[in-house]
Every structure is written in structure tokens, then in C-alpha cells.
Nucleic acid binder design. Sequence first.
DNA 1: GTCTATATTGTGATAGAC
DNA 2: GTCTATCACAATATAGAC
Lengths: 226, 226
Amino acid sequence: MIDESSEPGAEYAGDTAGAASDGDTERRILHAARNVFVRRGTAGARMQEIAAEAGVNQALLHYYFRSKERLAAAVFREAASRLVPEVVRILGSALSLEEKVEGFVHAYIDTVRQNPFLPGYVLAELHHHPERLTALREISRVQPSDALRTLRERLAAELEERARSGSMRRIPVDQFIVNVASLCVFPFAARPVLDAALGFDDEAFERFLDERREALPSFILAALRP
Amino acid sequence: MIDESSEPGAEYAGDTAGAASDGDTERRILHAARNVFVRRGTAGARMQEIAAEAGVNQALLHYYFRSKERLAAAVFREAASRLVPEVVRILGSALSLEEKVEGFVHAYIDTVRQNPFLPGYVLAELHHHPERLTALREISRVQPSDALRTLRERLAAELEERARSGSMRRIPVDQFIVNVASLCVFPFAARPVLDAALGFDDEAFERFLDERREALPSFILAALRP
DNA sequence: GTCTATATTGTGATAGAC
DNA sequence: GTCTATCACAATATAGAC
């Protein structure tokens, strides 16, 4: 049973179905719910399993979150809230393009490594529940200075300037964004396929990530050389 | 209601809940099942919805496939059987590395474009049902000459030779494979995110794919220059 | 092979005691 | 706030006529 969380001070046995009413119960439930939703998907998750993993009764889930759907929405919001601000923070920085690429690759791999199944969960969730997009949009809108739209424009200007000065090949900004995102996110989202196709186990995957963390920035930048 | 299939001669209204017993019923059911499983996920799919979309009764699903689980397994096998051989075919060809990269990008985008939600479905399915990996492995094993292992070795040799001759930068073969796969697959798997982050609609996504089909090979090869 | 019931279990949700 | 017990219905699966 993998604990996908990494909050400090979050250790309690999943099957402690007694009086473990120390910390915040609501947080315990949300935490258990994330684990279950991440590994089973929203439709496959069972309220009973969440209750057991939180060490509480099933009725409490409804007391705190009213319905499975609301609980699922809360979990998704929380997961997306971990990823979006991190992305915005890096891209919004005043670094050079080269530093941004390296900073993004490093920060993304370092962050997601602690919750390696989050990307797969978020993608699967969006695939099967397009209505979650509104939550994503809201999170993005709340970001300082309406970040996503602004960041895209700034990045486009930077790429254009580099192309004009001849220090980089011209590349459409959307292609560039998707390239970087692809190279960072896909290995996590496709973890099971990598296990099958390349024979990875946990340890091999960790080594692969170490190697990737170092090699990816120069791979990306090399592709942009004129 | 999107029809994710592209088999020739497969047009019947989904709500024709009458006597449409022309073609092969089993195939009709499998076809409808794929549509429903792809958009709802295995756990979220309802046998009733599949029956309705196939224009038959729910009991027939059990007559042909015995249980939902077996039907799900059949759908997954069929989906994976579309993707794996295509990949093997291209990589196994006797082309140069440059031609292989271009051939793979073109073939993958051209193929998957007709079933743009397949990658998302396969990834989500593997994420939530790791047991499906065995099916993937079986399909891979059946490929001529135990293809996957062999292909990886051949590719590694090719990359090594290029590195030795100085015509390409050295890159670990697994990183290279994952890079190419990431850049091709991710845009499909993350379609909803692209819609949200870059404001794509169906038409914009198609234009994006056209552009990508042409730009991606040179992006990849440029990254490998010494 | 295909249909109309119907059996049977699973599962989200609520009532009400403590 | 937390529990036990239970409701109500959704969903898979089967029986049996045609």
C-alpha cells in the first residue's frame, strides 16, 4: 500500500480503526481519499476503502464532505493546487531562458518525484471527467497576475527575440511549451509502460530520473541551437 | 457522442435499439464497448450504456463476453494491439536513424489522430489496472523476433556508433526512447490540459498537430547534434 | 442468438443513538 | 463528532421464453 502523500507528520496506520482522534479528522480523510482516488480512479474508488484507510467510519466521510462527488472534487483541487503554482512560480521568474528550462526540469522532477502518481491521476481524471477543467481554470486564474496567459506571452517574446538575434532557432511557443511539458510529465504518467517496455523497477526508475534530471535541460537547449 | 473508431463500414446510429442484426453482433458490441470504456474508463463504464450504443440488449453482452471484466480485457487488448505493432513496424525497419525518427513521428501522429483518445485510455487503464500489463507483455512477445528487446539493443548500437563517429552526441538509449515517446504521445494524453492551458479547440488542436508533425523530427535530431 | 424479466449483490447515502 | 444500523437504488449477472 503506497502512501502517495508526503506531508510532514502524517503517519498513522491505515487499519487503526479505533479511536485515533488525535489530529484533524477532516485532513486525515482527505489524505486517505487522495491515496485511494489516485490508485483506483474516481469511479473505481470506494467510500468504504477510504474510510478504512483513514481509520474512521464511512458515515464520517459524508459528515465532512457530503458526497463522494464533493470529496473527489476536493481531492482533485488539492492535487492540482500542488502542481499549478509550482509551474507558475518557475516560469514567472526573471531568469534567462536557459535558466528557466533547467530550473523547470529540476523543480518539476524534484517535486513530482515525491508524489510520482499524481500526474497519472490528474491526466486520467481530466480524461474521464472533463468538468474538472473548470477547477483547473479557477486555480490558474487565482495565480498572481493571471499567470498562464501572461506567461505564454512573455515566453513567446523571449523566443522571438532569441530567434531574431540568431542565438536560437525559431520555434512556435506552443510547440515549445508542449515539448518541455511532454519531456517532464510523460515519464511519470507512463510509468507502467516504461516498466513493461524497458524493464524498470522502482530502483531503475529512480536512477532513470537522476540521469534525466541532468540530461534533459541540455537536450532541450541543444534542440534550440540555430 | 464521439465515435472513436475508424473501421471502414462501421456506421450505425448508437440509438438504433431495434433489429440492426446485419453485421457481426460480437464486433458491434466490442466496438461500442471501446467507445464507452474510452470515455468513461473501465470502472466508470456501464454495461447498459454499452448495450444501448451497440443497439442490443444488455444480456447479449454477457452472452458474448461473460462478464464486464472480460469485456474490458478484450477492449484493452484490442486497443493495445493497434498501437504496439505499429511502433514495432517502424522501429524495426532498416532505415537510417534520421529516417526512423521522422518515420516514427509521422506514422504515430497519423495513426493516433484517427483515435485521439486511445493513448489517454491506455495510460489511464494501466495506471488503475496494473494487471493489464501482462496483456501488453503478451502482445509485445508475439511480435516478430521478440521485437521490443531486440529493437532496444539495435537502437542502442546505432546511437553508440553515431556517438563514436562524432556525428551525434552521446545519449543513453532509454532516455532517447522516452524522449521520442514523450514528444509524440503526451499531446494526445494531455489533450484536456492543452485545451485549458493554451485555449485549444478541435480545430486549433488539428492545426497544432499538423505543425508538430513537421517540426518534431528536426527538433529531435537537432537535440542530438554534437 | 436475442429478448424480457428478475435475482443478487454492491455502494452511496441517511437516521438516529451516544 | 463519531458511531452502528439501515435504506434505496444502481449495476452486474442470470433464468428462461421465443
